[in-house]
């Protein structure tokens, strides 16, 4: 076996040339393109990363704004709630005041009504008491219905003012005398005697029977009235009992 050294040398040169050609026209451009693609991918990744960061920043900003909006909304809601609470309190206070006023008015009305009722009750009781007293006094014996009152009637006439008594004394005709029953002769004489003594002249009497007087005598003159009867007493008592606040 022999080796052709020329062939060996040519083949070595051929292989070296081929290595150069492949390096120049195959590996270098392919690797350059791969590197360019990788660079482009890296750029795209960087851009995507930057976009993602920007998006995250925007998201964070949006979150912040949303939080601010939520805080503002909460503040407004709180303010509205505070206002509503204040208005509620004011309304409640007004309502309470109104209710209190109404209650006081009602209480006043109730008190007035109660006072009125009490007065009416008192009046009715007074009238009832006077009626009872009048009924009881009707049981006074007939002899006690007139005679004991004659002296008092004369005293009453004497107690009249001078002018009234003078006018009464100067009057002509009989004196109008009211009695609960017809006077007996003795009672009529006693009356005339007593009155004549007081008036200083003889007296005639025109007796009118008024059973409502119960007991006692009542002298009616044009300018004076002298009452000395149970009815007058009862009327005075009733008047006193039914006088409220005077």
């Amino acid at each position: 076996m022999t080796i052709d050294w020329w062939t060996l040398a040519l083949q070595a040169i051929n292989v070296l040339v081929l290595l150069f050609i492949l390096s120049r026209f195959l590996f270098r451009p392919v690797v350059a393109m791969m590197a360019e693609r990788q660079a482009a991918a890296t750029r795209d990744l960087d851009a995507a990363r930057a976009a993602r960061k920007a998006a995250e920043a925007e998201q964070a900003k949006a979150k912040t704004e949303a939080a601010a909006i939520a805080a503002a909304r909460k503040d407004k809601l709180d303010a509205a709630a505070t206002d509503a609470e204040a208005q509620k309190k004011a309304l409640l206070a007004a309502a309470r005041a109104e209710v209190e006023a109404l209650r006081k008015g009602a209480e006043a009305e109730i008190s007035a009504a109660r006072a009125t009722a009490e007065r009416e009750d008192a009046d009715r009781a007074s009238h009832l008491a006077v009626d009872i007293a009048a009924r009881l006094l009707t049981r006074v014996p007939a002899e006690a219905q007139v005679f004991p009152f004659i002296g008092d009637l004369a005293d009453g006439v004497a107690a009249l003012p001078e002018a009234s008594r003078t006018t009464l004394a100067a009057a002509e005709g009989p004196l109008a005398l009211k009695a609960p029953r017809a006077l007996t002769e003795a009672e009529a004489d006693a009356c005339r005697t007593k009155l004549a003594a007081v008036l200083g002249r003889p007296v005639t009497l025109a007796v009118e029977v008024v059973p409502e007087l119960i007991a006692g005598l009542e002298l009616d003159a044009p300018h004076a009235v002298v009452r000395n009867t149970f009815r007058a007493d009862l009327d005075r008592i009733l008047k006193e009992l039914t006088r409220h606040g005077a």
């Binding site: 062939t7 083949q11 051929n14 492949l22 451009p29 392919v30 360019e36």
Partner: peptide, 27 residues
């Protein structure tokens, strides 16, 4: 010799093929 000639052919084929294949590389 023949191996040298064949190698030249291979050289031309590989070199030409590489040149043609890498002319329009794209991303």
């Amino acid at each position: 010799t023949e191996p040298v000639v064949v190698t030249w052919g291979i050289l031309l084929a590989l070199g030409g093929g590489a040149f043609l294949a890498t002319r329009h590389l794209k991303l």
